[in-house]
Amino acid sequence: MSHRPFHHGNLRAVLLEEAEAVLRERGVDALSLRELARAAGVSHGAPRSHFIDRSALLDALAERGFLRLADEMRGAASRAPGDHALALGAATSAYLRFAVREPALLDLMFAAKTDGPSEAVRNAADRLFGTMTDIMGAGVEAGAYDARDVGRLTMLLSATVQGISALVTSRRITTSQGEALVDDAIRIFLAGVSAER
């Protein structure tokens, strides 16, 4: 067996990259620390210095997924400064793109969040929800809605984008239909909020 060199102690990152590839190609059931070690060219015990067991690996993948999705949504929203509707649309579209690109990871993320999550997974999920709350909070500054409604509207946004993503990833609708639904949902969402005021 050939061993790959790991410069600057990057074995953990290499294992997570490999685990994401396995998750993407073969699903969560195909993930094992022993197989990841073999793919990375290290001893079968080497991953245990980073992940005590398979559950720890799954938690690390979920944590990484939540953080990446939060960053992608925040980055998308930041490209539309001063226009809340555009920022909201960009952020929800970023969520949909992530779901289409990483459906197995998204499933793992939300399974880990609801199934006795570790503190790291809980914190990462909170960061995603905090990002959505911040994006919605920008609507208060834009005069789109009242600060008292931000929590409720954030939950509604989360449920809406997750539902549309589930329709796309289960192939009940196409990605372009999902994108159109996101646009419609944001338009209806903002119009409904305005009508309530």
Score class of each variant (00 low, 15 high):
M1D: 12
S2Y: 14
H7K: 14
G9W: 00
R12P: 13
A13F: 10
A13C: 08
L16V: 12
E17F: 14
E18W: 14
A19C: 00
A19D: 01
R24M: 10
G27P: 04
L33E: 06
E35Y: 15
L36A: 06
R38S: 08
A39F: 03
A39C: 05
V42F: 05
S43G: 05
H44A: 12
G45T: 14
H50V: 12
H50E: 13
S55E: 09
A56Y: 10
A56H: 01
L57S: 06
L58N: 04
R68D: 01
R68H: 01
L69W: 09
R74M: 03
A76Y: 09
A76L: 05
R79C: 05
A80W: 11
P81Y: 07
H84S: 06
L86R: 15
A90L: 10
A91W: 00
F98D: 03
F98W: 02
V100G: 03
E102N: 00
L106H: 01
L106M: 05
D107W: 12
L108G: 05
L108W: 09
F110K: 06
A112V: 09
A112Y: 03
K113Q: 14
T114D: 15
D115E: 11
S118C: 02
V121L: 05
V121S: 08
N123M: 15
D126T: 03
D126Y: 03
L128S: 07
G130C: 09
M136F: 01
E141L: 02
A142M: 00
A142D: 10
A144Q: 02
Y145W: 11
D146P: 04
R148P: 02
V150W: 10
T154W: 02
L157C: 07
L157E: 03
S158N: 13
V161W: 13
I164C: 03
L167I: 04
L167E: 03
V168H: 08
V168C: 02
S170Y: 09
I173T: 06
T174H: 02
S176I: 15
G178C: 08
E179P: 11
L181M: 12
D183L: 05
D183R: 08
I186C: 07
A191C: 02
A191L: 04
A191M: 08
E196F: 13
